[in-house]
Simulated assay, not measured.
Amino acid sequence: MTLLDARARTSAVARINPVAKLGAAMLITVPLVLTLDVVSATVALVLELMLAPFAGLGWREFWARTWLLWVLAPLTGLTIALYGRTAGEVYFEWFAITVSDGSLYLALATTLRVLAIALPSVVLFASVDPTDLADGLAQILKLPSRFVLGALAGLRMVGLFIDDWRSLELARRARGVADRGRLRRFFGMAFALLVLSIRRGAKLATAMEARGFGSDIPRTWARTSTFGGREWALMAVGLAIAVIAVTAAIATGAWNFILGPE
Score class of each variant (00 low, 15 high):
Phe161Gly: 15
Leu168Phe: 10
Arg180Ser: 13
Leu239Asn: 03
Val148Glu: 12
Thr224Phe: 04
Thr10Pro: 00
Ala202Cys: 05
Ala192Gly: 00
Glu209Trp: 04
Leu170His: 12
Ala202Pro: 00
Lys21Gln: 04
Leu104Cys: 01
Val46Asp: 00
Thr98Trp: 03
Gly150His: 03
Glu89Pro: 03
Val19Phe: 12
Val38Ala: 13
Ser100Arg: 09
Leu196Ile: 03
Ala202Asn: 12
Asp5Glu: 12
Leu108Tyr: 09
Ala25Asn: 10
Ile217Lys: 14
Val90Cys: 12
Ala107Asp: 03
Leu112Met: 01
Arg60Met: 11
Ala12Ser: 14
Val46Cys: 00
Gly238Thr: 02
Leu259Glu: 02
Gly136Pro: 00
Thr10Lys: 13
Tyr105Asn: 11
Pro130Ala: 02
Ala134Met: 02
Gly154Thr: 06
Arg113Asp: 05
Val38Met: 09
Phe92Tyr: 15
Glu209Phe: 00
Leu34Val: 05
Ile16Gly: 00
Arg175Pro: 02
Phe213Pro: 05
Leu193His: 03
Phe187Leu: 14
Gly159Ser: 13
Thr247Arg: 01
Leu170Gly: 00
Ile28Tyr: 03
Glu48Thr: 13
Arg185Leu: 13
Glu231Pro: 08
Thr226Trp: 05
Arg7Ser: 13
Asp216Glu: 14
Val46Ile: 14
Arg65Gly: 07
Asp129Arg: 15
Ala153Met: 08
Leu115Asn: 00
Leu141His: 05
Glu231Val: 10
Phe54Ser: 15
Leu124Asn: 03
Arg230Leu: 10
Leu119Thr: 12
Ala109Val: 01
